[in-house]
Structures are given as structure tokens and as C-alpha cells.
């Protein structure tokens, strides 16, 4: 069934049992902490992503939000993929995810880079849902910029 491509088990798992959900303070008081709240105006989905970083490593990525399975699972995957990573690495993954979501189903994802994020390949075939998947990633990008760490190249969603 076509629907299985969209609602992969991995996505439903992340939705039902989200990883690292809830906004947290930084463990290290020296960390810079910043957050961004993004809303999808067409559906009302909301997510807040908060990063704690020393400028080189993303020590924590915490989040909270309400929305559909796709947007909330995407936040969980983002947390799992990028938490503890170097800033440069994290932006490379961010770029790969945005490329996957903008590819209208024509991009073959690299599991080594995207991990559970590959499950979102099917979402790219549903233009109405691409914004759901990207919502936490765009909030993450804003949050890192506010934390004063490098900005990834401009993305078009």
C-alpha cells in the first residue's frame, strides 16, 4: 500500500516513542543556549528546538512541540542524529536531509549520513507533507544561528 511509504515503521516508532523530547537546560553552564519556535501556518503544527553548544559541538538538542506524526517524528530523528555531533558534521546532515525532502522522491538517501532520517524518503513524494518533516529542521537551523554557530547554506523547501 502506498501509505506504507509515507508512514514507515521507523517514523511511527519515533512518533509513538519520541527520543529526547522536552526542553532542557544545558548541563554545562558555559554552553551557549538558544532556541527557535517554528509554526506551520497551514496546519498549526508547532515545534520549539533548543541547542546547547560550546561553539564546536552540539552538546544537546532538545525540543517540544505539537503536531502530526511526521513533524514530531522528524524532531525525534533530528535529536538522535545531531545531538553530540560537531557543528560542521551536523550541518552536513542537515543539508542532506533538506536535499532528500526537496527531491520529490528522486533522491536516494545515504543511510550512513541520515540514519533513521532515510525513513522520510517516502514523505518527499507528498508535497503537502514535506513542510511537516522540515519544520523541526528549520527551527534547528534558526536555533543554531541564534546560538552563534555557523550557518548552513540557504535551503529551499
Amino acid at each position: 500500500m502506498q501509505l506504507d511509504q509515507l508512514y514507515q515503521e521507523i517514523i511511527l516508532d519515533h512518533y509513538k516513542r519520541p527520543h529526547g523530547r522536552g526542553l532542557r537546560d544545558a548541563d554545562d553552564p558555559a554552553d551557549r543556549v538558544a532556541e527557535a519556535h517554528h509554526v506551520n501556518p497551514t496546519c498549526g503544527d508547532e515545534v520549539t528546538v533548543r541547542v546547547a553548544t560550546d561553539g564546536t559541538v552540539l552538546h544537546d538538542i532538545s525540543y517540544d512541540g505539537m503536531g502530526c506524526s511526521i513533524s514530531q517524528a522528524s524532531a525525534s530523528v533530528l535529536h538522535e542524529l545531531l545531538r553530540g555531533r560537531g557543528v560542521g558534521e551536523a550541518f552536513a546532515v542537515h543539508e542532506a536531509f533538506v536535499e532528500l525532502m526537496s527531491g520529490r522522491g528522486q533522491v536516494t538517501p545515504d543511510e550512513d549520513v541520515l540514519g533513521d532520517g532515510v525513513a522520510f524518503a517516502g514523505v518527499a513524494r507528498y508535497p503537502a507533507r514535506v513542510k511537516c518533516a522540515l519544520l523541526p529542521w528549520m527551527a534547528f537551523k534558526d536555533a543554531t544561528a541564534r546560538a552563534g554557530v555557523g550557518v548552513s547554506p540557504e535551503v529551499k523547501a
Partner: peptide, 25 residues
């Protein structure tokens, strides 16, 4: 269950409903 997910599954069955805030937030 989020309305987007409800609407998506219904659409896969040919059932067209509207989901979202209906321009009445």
C-alpha cells in the same frame, strides 16, 4: 491522532476531508 495523519490515511482510501485550522484558528 493529528488531523494531518487522519486526513492522509483517509486520502489513501479515496476519502477527501479537510484537516487543519480551517481558517478559523
Amino acid at each position: 491522532i493529528h488531523p494531518h495523519d487522519v486526513g492522509q490515511v483517509l486520502d489513501s482510501l479515496g476519502v477527501q476531508v479537510r484537516v487543519g485550522h480551517h481558517c478559523a484558528k
